[in-house]
Design a binder for these strands. Structure first.
Length: 261
DNA sequence: AGAAAGCCTCGGCCGC
DNA sequence: TGCGGCCGAGGCTTTC
């Protein structure tokens, strides 16, 4: 679920805890997979005070008076305070809160508890997360950064969908946002990046920023205009043409057979 | 049974 | 030959 919009809402939630001291924390073996051992998180967070929050793409950053804490949410991770999302739209579809799906957490001195809820166990806790390999953040992408994102050194480059999903090119675009941006721009997701002409680049940038703004307003990455056509046999909500789907850039991709080319 | 809104690694291919 | 870039496949993990 979590693409940049969802992680931004988790950040806003965590922001409520700024100024509070962590009495203790824990993370299970899966959430600790990028750490030296399952006890590393508990040892590292004890006694830290949360002094701020930030985010780069889908990586949530908790700034403290000591180490920096990072949270990645995988496909199904959600951040909660005391079992409550606090913000509409954090949960979607069939998902619901279950205590046994809480994989990690931070207990604060004032009694509140921040937890990582993740049925499929692909979320991860990090300490002093590496930012070097992440591109500029999708929510604040400037035209200059966008142009750099499209740079291809040799040949035709990857399919534009694959480039949008490349977190080192731009951080935060996931499968649904990627498809929605290209749907809005009217661009075939398989188009090699270097073959996009000027008009397509202009449209793509406008669709990129527009999609971020409008889906943030609507309340999530899963509320895109193309979503009603996003199933086998679906039709385009804009023009009624057949929606096509195949694997592009390693992910199942949907696009309109008529208005995306 | 197959797919899933993330991410990582591997092996192979291509082009300079 | 070497290296980066890219791609597809596969794995992780559990649920629907």
């Amino acid at each position: 679920m979590p693409e940049v919009l969802e992680v931004e809402s988790y950040r806003a939630l965590a922001q409520r805890l700024v100024g509070e001291r962590i009495t203790h924390g824990w993370a299970d073996a899966y959430a600790s997979k990028k750490l030296p051992s399952p006890s590393t998180w508990a040892r590292a967070v004890k006694g830290l005070t949360l002094v701020g929050t930030s985010r780069r793409g889908k990586l949530l950053i908790l700034e403290t008076n000591g180490v920096t804490l990072g949270l990645r949410f995988g496909m199904t991770g959600v951040l909660l305070i005391d079992g409550e999302a606090g913000i509409d739209g954090l949960f979607y579809g069939p998902h619901e809160y279950k205590a046994e799906w809480v994989r990690a957490g931070l207990q604060f001195e004032d009694g509140r508890k921040l937890v990582l809820h993740d049925p499929r166990r692909l979320a991860r806790c990090e300490i002093d997360p590496e930012l070097d390999k992440l591109g500029p953040d999708a929510l604040s992408l400037t035209r200059r950064e966008f142009n750099e994102m499209l740079v291809v050194v040799r040949g035709e480059g990857p399919a534009i969908k694959a480039r949008l999903l490349d977190q080192s090119a731009v951080a935060g675009v996931g499968n649904l946002l990627g498809d929605e941006i290209l749907f809005d721009a009217g661009i075939d997701p398989r188009t090699p990046t270097a073959l996009l002409d000027e008009r397509q680049r202009d449209r793509l940038y406008r669709s990129f920023t527009h999609t971020m703004r409008s889906l943030k307003k609507r309340g999530g990455s899963h509320l895109g205009t193309h979503m009603p056509g996003r199933f086998p046999g679906g039709v385009c909500p804009l023009d009624g043409a057949t929606m096509l789907s195949s694997n592009v850039g390693g992910r199942t991709t949907y696009w309109c057979s008529a208005h995306q080319h």
